[in-house]
Design a protein around this nucleic acid. Structure first.
Lengths: 178, 178
DNA sequence: ACCTGAACACCGTTCAAGT
DNA sequence: ACCTGAACACCGTTCAAGT
């Protein structure tokens, strides 16, 4: 019974609102109660899903810089339907988010930050990436469903993301680049 | 029938998982279906709640600087149980989030940023504030409930928030604009 | 204009019991 | 060790009908 694998597929195919314990059990051809032998509750299962979503970030090649690591973080969340929302909802439980944080910290050290600055920078970067990407994904999916998005002044796409990351990594340079 | 007022109180007293349409109807002494005359669905109701949560940010005095505006944004979300989560879940629908964004933009202009830099800075700041605060609130509430938070390396408190804001608002940026 | 009543199609979780 | 079956206490939403 590949519970996590099936959960990840179901999430991607149908979205978080339809990823119920009952739907997951149906997909695995077991009773809903069977899942509670494998996971304490739904939260714990989602934490495992979030960890799987963020696995590519943890596996980034050595020497990867912070801008690239942040981009990979965003892309990992965007690669699965409602991926950012799952990561947000389980960030306090650790697992995936903690490993992504470590990866960002290491990337900052590869960029020449020393330890303390890297920890502080990774913290800011992580929170920014999550805030931006969850907004971006929510907008994209609301649009797909046909929800009437009132023309908001807040942008959240690949270029605004890169801009924010640049601002966090080297403020002062961002406007002279554009 | 003060639906929004009651919803906000219920949210603060019992948290988002217990803010159901049925519980809200019970509190208002009406049938659940009655709520659907006032709101199209639960999402729209939550958007109204988010707008109420962020009202203090929109009403900040003229001339307020960006660091102070960001702090007020964080505090508004923290002032209500699961406030950040509600804001996150309705950000794509506009309302509260849009007005908070405008307030941050104006604050940046009060700090000397010109229009384009203020828009871009407010975007980064908004996403950062939301990411940081939703994490901070989730941790605080998980702790209260007694959830076993594995000792995570990621910090999210008042001082790490101020640090991130300062990083985004780096003074070097203002100089490079002119 | 505003609400009721009844129904539809769902949830997460627990727990004794089975194999 | 791993799962079933049955139950408990819920959900959001729709819609004809009432006042």
């Amino acid at each position: 019974m590949d519970v996590l694998e099936t959960a990840l597929r179901l999430l991607d195919e149908r979205g978080l609102p339809d990823l119920s314990m009952r739907a997951l059990a149906r997909e695995l051809d077991v009773q809903p109660s069977a899942l509670y032998w494998h996971f304490k509750n739904k939260q714990e299962l989602l934490a495992g899903v979030a960890d799987a979503i963020l696995a590519p970030v943890a596996q980034l090649p050595e020497g990867t810089g912070a801008a690239e690591a942040a981009a990979a973080f965003r892309e990992a969340m965007l690669s699965v339907t409602d991926g950012a929302e799952v990561v947000v909802s389980t960030i306090a439980l650790g697992l995936g988010a903690d490993r992504a944080f470590e990866r960002l910290r290491i990337a900052l050290e590869a960029d020449g930050y020393e330890r303390n600055a890297a920890v502080s920078g990774a913290t800011t970067l992580l929170h920014y990436c999550i805030g931006h990407t969850s907004h971006e994904q929510q907008r994209a999916q609301a649009f797909r469903i046909g929800v009437d998005l009132n023309e908001s002044p807040i942008t959240a796409d690949a270029s605004s993301f890169a801009e924010g990351v640049a601002r966090i990594l080297s403020p002062g340079l961002v406007d002279s680049i554009g």
